[in-house]
């Protein structure tokens, strides 16, 4: 295969259809960027699940007027219970400290909250999170110094279903965009083939192999796919630097949201690139088979 020949054909093709090529690259980039975002959210969700589910499953908030005896009775009950894997006591001061950290981005809220407004609590990890109702039964609300028992797992389930929804929506939009990108690629390739019909007709007549004739078109699409993928990765990097790392710095520091680290982007980048190049090449190949006589 004459590499120079093929590459110069590719370059000519891309230059000749500049507007279509740009449109093709941009749609591909948006689609792949959204796909990458979806994958990052998916990774974030599983990270968050690890953070949260491991830490806390049940919170037992104590009443303001809880006595020292009541507190140690609860603690004794927790340490004796076979259902409990571990527990942590959080005093009013600790709760306030954590609150300050979590909401460091909203100083007014912190200022308007008196240090003793937050209840003390036991953070309990269950052997089996599903057994929450049984454990809750042992600590009836409003009795023995217990103000309220809350299943954090239940809250987390709802949070995660929200995040899963966000991930699915992102991927759905990515798929729709991908469809648009594929149609554009197909269109561009048809146009490119039409522009080069003199060359390809002659190639066909003198007995150039099918691959020789098709490869420039397929490479053209693949190259556009690759550029689109690079733009998408660039977009993800910008999103991390300008949005995630800045706006979400507080919650990330507080450990509420896992950070989007470079490793995650580095893992996703090749996936995006492969998807971009692969889909574009396949779309071009199918287009040539279906619509273009080479």
């Amino acid at each position: 295969m004459r590499v120079n020949f093929v590459l110069s054909e590719v370059a000519t093709g891309l230059r000749r259809n500049l507007t279509m090529t740009v449109a093709m690259i941009l749609t591909t980039a948006i689609s792949l960027g959204l796909m990458g975002t979806g994958l990052l959210i998916a990774g974030m969700i599983s990270d968050m699940k690890e953070i949260y589910y491991d830490k806390v499953q049940v919170s037992i908030f104590l009443a303001d007027d809880v006595t020292a005896e009541q507190r140690s009775a609860i603690e004794a009950q927790l340490s004796d219970s076979p259902e409990v894997a571990g527990y942590l006591y959080e005093s009013k001061e600790e709760a306030y400290e954590r609150f300050q950290q979590q909401f460091s981005q909203q100083p007014e809220l912190v200022e308007n909250t008196p240090p003793d407004a937050l209840p003390e609590s036991f953070r309990v990890e269950l052997v089996n999170p599903e057994r929450y109702p049984v454990v809750a039964e042992q600590f009836p609300n409003g009795q023995n110094g217990v103000d309220q028992v809350r299943d954090e797992g239940d809250f987390l389930d709802r949070l995660f279903s929200l995040l899963n929804g966000a991930r699915n929506a992102t991927i759905a939009v990515a798929v729709v965009q991908a469809l648009a990108a594929l149609l554009l690629i197909s269109n561009t390739i048809q146009l490119a083939a039409f522009n080069r019909r003199n060359e390809t007709n002659i190639m066909r007549l003198v007995g150039a192999s099918r691959w020789y004739t098709q490869l420039p078109f397929i490479l053209e699409a693949a190259l556009a796919g690759l550029i689109g993928a690079l733009l998408a990765v660039g977009g993800l990097v910008l999103t991390k630097v300008l949005f995630v790392d800045k706006t979400l710095a507080g919650p990330i520091k507080a450990g509420i949201i896992p950070p989007v680290d470079w490793a995650a982007i580095a893992t996703i980048a090749p996936v995006i690139a492969a998807a971009g190049v692969g889909l574009a090449a396949v779309a071009a190949y199918v287009t040539l088979r279906l619509y273009v006589r080479l």
Binding site: R2, F5, N198, E199, N201, I202, M203, V206, G207, A208, S209, Y212, T213
Partner: peptide
């Protein structure tokens, strides 16, 4: 059916290059 943007020699060479 010559290629307009190629010279005489390039037109002839084209038939050999692509095979």
């Amino acid at each position: 059916r010559l290629l307009r943007n190629r010279t005489v020699a390039e037109n002839v060479a084209f038939a050999l290059e692509v095979i």
